[in-house]
């Protein structure tokens, strides 16, 4: 963990902190909506990882500009950006489905706290 390591890699370290916060929300929070918020943070941190990896120093956005010409070193890497675009849409799709499941849960159990739902399930058996 030297200073040089941190200079090149600090964005990744912060991304991982964000990832762990999201993971904590997903697994250890009792409220189901909080779990979904944690899931969103978890997913966004992965997008951020890809975008940080796509960065090139002294490069500009990946749209061709006649002043810079066709040199590959002048533009940011487009492939991770495409991957993230796809992943964002997938993430929102998952969130939408999760919310509809949450609504049905609320309708059937009258609560979205995990422990109360488990209690009701135990009583039903």
């Amino acid at each position: 963990m030297t200073v040089e390591f941190l200079q090149g890699h600090y964005p990744y370290v912060l991304v991982i902190v964000l990832l762990l916060i999201g993971l904590y929300g997903m697994t250890l929070k009792g409220n189901l909506l909080k779990k979904l918020i944690g899931m969103t943070i978890f997913q966004t941190s992965i997008y951020l990882f890809f975008i940080q990896g796509a960065v090139k120093t002294n490069a500009t956005i990946p749209v061709f500009s006649p002043e810079l010409g066709p040199g590959a070193e002048n533009y940011m890497n487009p492939l991770p950006q495409v991957i993230v675009l796809t992943a964002i849409v997938v993430g929102v799709a998952i969130t939408g489905v999760a919310l509809s499941l949450l609504l049905v849960t609320q309708q059937r159990y009258g609560t979205i706290e995990e422990d109360e739902i488990l209690e009701q399930m135990r009583q039903a058996e």
Binding site: M39, F42, I46, A98, L101, L102, T105
Partner: peptide
């Protein structure tokens, strides 16, 4: 009755796996 809750747990695990 319990299917949506069980599926929601599956969804969260699946999202973590996918992530």
């Amino acid at each position: 009755k319990a299917a949506p809750v069980a599926t929601l747990r599956y969804l969260i695990v699946g999202a973590a796996g996918g992530g």
